[in-house]
Simulated assay, not measured.
Amino acid sequence: MTAPLHLSVLDLVPVRDGQTSAQAVAASMRLAALADRLGYTRYWFAEHHNMPAVASTTPPVLIAAAAARTERIRVGSGGVMLPNHSPLVVAEQFAALEALAPGRIDLGLGRAPGSDGVITQLLRMSGTTSDVDRFGDHVADIAALVQPDGATLRLTSGREYAVHATPGASGAPAIWLLGSSDFSARLAAELGLPYVFAYHFAGEGIERALELYRTGYRPSEAHPEPRTFLTLNASVAQTHEEARARALPQLRGMARIQTGRPLQALETVDQAEAATPDAATAQVVAAMERRWVIGAPGEAAAEVRRLAERYGVDEVMVSPVAGAYEHEGADASPGRERTLELLARDVLPSG
């Protein structure tokens, strides 16, 4: 009998033309509550900075808000970009989240900056951050700090000093390592942590990374077996034509990044369809479209299952990239909601 396939959600809190960040966040909170009702396994927020089309700058804040609006779904980060932050502060934030929603918090950690070089420097000038060259050490530090027993430092005087992310902890968030390179795959295997390859934006190299992770995995007490899942972009609608139209704003937005053009809020579907793409944009859009799940319910569900089987995973995390038409309310995202509804209906056992 085939094992059931689980679905989860990755949310960048997209911001479209004419939409405020407050409206974008409100739309994402509605989406999180919907995912909870539909039976999705987890709901993660990404960390990005200074991008007009992305409002997910502070995953811990969004996680707390989503946890308050949901009942059973796991909520977490996909991920916190650790070089931007002090390991102790990250541990404290997620220990507090675990206290707010016991047994429902995931801490996904990444090594990328989540923005450009200027913003990276601003982040590191404005507070204590971690050393990217010591990423593995800092991951291990956080894993110890969030546990009920905490961590123990040995001072230069020889005295031992106990450090806890929060007093009286009764549980700890689940830690996942995120990445799109051999480095992150090897580190996750070495530390005995679950690992997620960022297929939704970096499709190349996934086979090698997963092979390195699985063959090099060192069992840990919390995770005796390797665990990974697939992330992908998805736009699902009643017809293939509508799904493709709703995906077009995100496709064109990603093309702006890859072709080095000024960033802007996402276009509406109306604006994207009215635009005449230049050759470079058309080429990038066509290449990305081949890796995304775009289509009517049956074909989209079949593609999700095919990818899960190809990469040997029992969970798929979708980033719902279906855009909005100009007439649709700014405090909701009907296209993204419909994507989750249709996938749940055709993929989840109880959907």
Rank of each mutant, 00 (worst) to 15 (best):
Q23A: 14
E204L: 14
D149H: 09
I206Q: 09
A301T: 11
D133I: 06
P320R: 02
S181I: 01
R186S: 06
E289I: 07
R124C: 09
R37I: 08
R186L: 06
R246K: 04
L178W: 04
E337R: 00
A265Y: 07
G329D: 14
R338M: 11
L248N: 00
D133F: 09
L34V: 12
R104Y: 03
V118Y: 10
D36C: 10
L230W: 13
H223I: 00
E211Q: 15
S115M: 00
L10F: 06
D331E: 15
I257E: 15
V236Q: 00
H223Q: 10
E92P: 02
R208K: 14
P60G: 11
W44A: 14
G253T: 07
R338H: 05
L12V: 12
V313S: 09
E207H: 15
W292Q: 03
M254C: 08
T152N: 08
A55E: 13
E337Y: 04
G192Q: 01
E289A: 07
S235L: 01
S56G: 12
A332Y: 05
E315H: 13
E160M: 08
Y43C: 04
L82F: 03
E328H: 13
A101F: 04
H164L: 11
T215P: 05
V146S: 03
V25D: 13
G108A: 06
